[in-house]
Amino acid sequence: MNIVVCVKQVPDTATERKLRSDDKTLDRDAADGVINELCEYAVEEALRVKEAHGGEVTVLTMGPSKATETIRKALAMGADKAVHLVDDALHGSDALATSYAMAQALKKIGFDLVILGSESTDARTGLLAAMLAERLGAPQLTLANKVELSGQSITIQRLTDYGYDKVESTLPAVVSVVEKINEPRYPSFKGIMAAKKKQVQTLGIADAEIDAAQVGLAGAWSEVVDFAAAPPRAAGTIVKDEGDGGSRAAEYLASKKFI
């Protein structure tokens, strides 16, 4: 079983995140880069599938050279090897361009199962898994909080507003996972040491047969027109409860016609 887990380095949400004033893209130098939280669940799920069914787990990331830190984290958790899609031409790619580049890389690597987090904390589009399924012509098994494999069949529980849908398909398939599907393991000391020796292959756009005109800022299908720091919310009324806090809140809600 060839399992590819896609991971993304994102700016730490605990630090101030910014857009660059020059090209209006994410300022990746302004904040510390960390592995996107939902990607940790994806790595864990990939490792569990491997442990139960055998195979190999390959980490795939697209991002600048400093994204190797995120690759090492996934390798330290136990993934076998990694592919780093890195090229200046990819800078500024939007969701369409990213899905195109990632799909090209996945075709190059080959896969039975692709696993991703359902969204990233930076752009939060939640688009990539569905776009990859579309581009790869593979079944879309997304928003999974449970994954089960049996031979060439795969079944997931897909979270919905009313509960969940049980969805099945055959492999190869694209799976995205939600928070709490599992409890991601912490890398062990041994894992961290071993990760340093694992193979990380870098792919440029030519290696992955990516058309330069379809990626990067110039190849994007959408653009940021302008942006500005959100104006601070007007200072509210803060009162100390003197035994009548609930009543005063009710008065406020009534004044705003909520009750």
Partner: peptide, 11 residues
């Protein structure tokens, strides 16, 4: 038709 919904569970 690749990913079939075989059951809907309403919680």
């Amino acid at each position: 038709r690749a990913a079939k919904i075989v059951e809907r569970v309403k919680q």
